[in-house]
């Protein structure tokens, strides 16, 4: 069918022009190649995985880097597997792959709960766990579960490999511990955390495709009917994901009850520093922390092996 009003098929391809400013595109196959490109071009090179954060950023940016390095073809970044250290997610694992993984369903169900809340199918098909964590917005939806399960990240760069707790990887809003020439390789949930009672809840402004006003995750163990090693992680309530350590302390060693969980919710709210913005007031976010914490604790308890 002709695509024009009055001129019959008199012309060929027409370049309307991109809505992105010009950059160079490189697609290395290995981590080493990627590191080399970064080292050569840093800080004027940036990584692209699924692109669901970065291309949006580039479309709004007034300056673009010289080189965009597509890491989606790097095989070391792929795969979800059970290793002797724990459950390993390559940084390039997509949210859809997390949702479809039997290993995740068995060992870290809350990861799937969180993945399901990220964007919609199209976003989850492209968006990667690594991209989500590196973008490091306060509302990062994979953050709370991984922190409540004490995950560690592996980073590589020209100076070698570093491993650090995810909590330390998150430095501030949109700021991680990565140096300009470093890449995120994988994320590992340690063995001892697998299979514990864990639950994730996100509150947004609507059900479909919503950014988190608050997201909460709790993971617990039971020791002779008492709560043990409780971990509560809260997102979108502080510059980065935080742990509600006072609430955790309150819970550890006690017998679970609805009242106790409600009290822990109140305590968690005292530990957060949510902001007022156009999406919600700080006060409402505090209400959501109270309710959310209470609810994820109750659900984590239901899921905890006895």
């Amino acid at each position: 069918m002709p695509r024009f009003g009055m001129f019959p098929a008199a012309f060929g391809l027409f370049d309307r022009g991109s809505t992105l400013k010009p950059f160079e595109y490189l697609a290395p196959d290995t981590v080493d190649e990627a590191v080399a490109i970064l080292t050569d071009n840093a800080p004027d090179a940036r990584l692209l995985a699924g692109g669901t954060d970065y291309l949006v950023e580039l479309k709004h940016a007034s300056e673009v880097p010289k080189v965009v390095v597509d890491v989606s073809g790097i095989s070391e970044f792929k795969g979800i597997e059970l290793t002797d250290k724990g459950l390993r997610f390559g940084s390039g694992v997509t949210h859809t792959e997390i949702m479809e993984s039997d290993l995740v369903a068995e060992h870290a169900l809350a990861m799937q709960e969180a993945a399901l809340t990220i964007g919609a199918v199209q976003t989850r098909n492209l968006g990667t766990l690594g991209g989500n964590l590196v973008t490091c917005v306060p509302s990062v939806d994979s953050g709370p579960v991984l922190i409540a399960l004490d995950a560690a990240v592996t980073i590589t760069g020209s100076k070698g490999i570093r491993i650090m707790p995810l909590l330390d990887f998150f430095v501030g809003p949109r700021k991680t511990a990565l140096e300009p020439d470093e890449l995120l390789v994988d994320i590992v949930i340690p063995k001892e955390m697998l299979g514990r009672g864990c639950s994730f809840r996100k509150f947004g402004l609507r059900k479909g495709q919503a950014l988190a006003l608050v997201n909460t995750c709790a993971s617990i163990d039971l020791d002779a009917g008492k709560l043990a090693d409780v971990r509560i992680a809260l997102g979108a309530v502080a510059p980065t994901v935080i742990r509600a350590v006072k609430a955790e302390k309150l819970l550890n060693g006690k017998a679970p009850s609805d009242d106790l969980f409600a009290e822990a919710g109140d305590m968690a709210a005292t530990e957060a520093k949510p902001i007022n913005d156009f999406r919600a007031s700080a006060g409402y976010r505090l209400d959501l922390i109270r309710t959310g914490t209470k609810r994820v604790l109750a659900e984590a308890l239901e899921r905890a092996p006895r």
């Binding site: 919609a120 402004l205 609507r206 059900k207 479909g208 495709q209 156009f278």
Partner: peptide
């Protein structure tokens, strides 16, 4: 009823002129 509102800051600048922050119902809503 529940979601949509164009928001302005004190200078009259729109805060949410995009479909990320202007909340319209999806199929789930």
């Amino acid at each position: 009823a529940l979601y949509e509102e164009m928001l302005f800051d004190d200078n009259g600048k729109q805060i949410n002129p995009n479909l990320t922050n202007y909340i319209m119902p999806t199929s789930l809503d």
